[in-house]
Design a protein around this nucleic acid. Structure first.
Length: 256
DNA sequence: ATGGTGGCCCGGCCA
């Protein structure tokens, strides 16, 4: 099974690149973030033509998350599955080939003194609570998406540059560890050294200068972690005309 | 350097 995650920064602007990428890499499941589409504008047909089913959770201009799967999209849940607001369509779940898949777009947080930083920490806490309430230890589970947190200093181009900023702060990293402590593994690092990034600011030539961060993660339960056979970031997808500012992350699993 | 670029959709927000 091949699982991928990609923050496309507007599926409307990126659809040709996304369908071409799917054709080239044939993921079984692709989690998409920042579709920036309302549900009624989601390009279902473009994916069904490629053999994929989809579920989407979006209300228009901001955020929006989707799961694209050729292993089914059973029991979809939009948002946190409760009355709690997910702060603008930032999480969707579905079961794909027996694996409970979550596509997440964690709030950015803006800055440590901004109220949105508090929302970010709350949101990460709610993600852990949702796991406790909807998944059982022993289930096959993955949470894929743009976490807007770099797990450790090897995941940013210059730790000194980020002192006092979001994405690297202690509380964010602690909240991420609390999610992993449910029983999830950041398997990418097993196959890649520090300094392999997934996001580069559009500005100032950051991509070409190597000034990036690894904030797009594929977290998997122990059974999946045991079967992980490869993990890579597709740098080519960040190149060329009209790229997203994120590259896709791909993890392969041997059959059970 | 409070810059820079890109997406939304047309003035300003968001990343």
């Amino acid at each position: 099974m091949r699982v991928a995650t990609w923050n496309v920064n507007s599926l409307g602007a990126r659809l040709p690149r996304v369908t071409a990428w799917i054709t080239d890499h044939r993921p079984d499941v692709l989690c998409i973030q920042e579709t920036k589409l309302a549900d009624d504008k989601f390009p279902t047909a473009a994916f069904s033509e490629l053999g994929y089913e989809t579920v989407h959770h979006g209300d228009g201009r901001w955020n929006g998350v989707a799961i694209v799967s050729r292993l089914g999209v059973d029991d979809p849940v939009r948002g946190f599955g409760s009355a709690e607001d997910d702060h603008g369509c930032r999480i969707i779940a579905a079961t794909c080939g027996g694996v409970r898949v979550h596509s997440v777009y964690v709030p950015n947080g803006r800055s440590l003194d901004n109220e949105f930083y508090g929302f970010k920490l709350e949101w990460l806490g709610r993600l852990r609570t949702m796991l406790d309430q909807t998944c059982q230890p022993g289930d096959s589970v993955t949470i894929c998406g743009d976490f807007n947190v770099a797990p450790d200093d090897g995941d940013v181009w210059d730790p000194a540059h980020f002192v006092g900023m979001t994405h690297v702060s202690g509380p964010e990293r602690a909240a991420l560890r609390q999610i992993e402590a449910w029983g999830l593994n950041d398997v990418f690092r097993r196959f890649n050294p520090p300094g392999v990034f997934t996001w580069w600011d559009y500005r100032a030539g950051d991509f070409h200068q190597g000034r990036g961060m690894r904030i797009d993660l594929v977290l998997v339960s122990d059974d999946l972690a045991d079967r992980a056979s490869a993990a890579f970031m597709d740098r080519d997808a960040r190149k060329g005309q009209k790229p997203s500012d994120h590259a896709p992350v791909v993890v392969d699993f041997a059959d059970a």
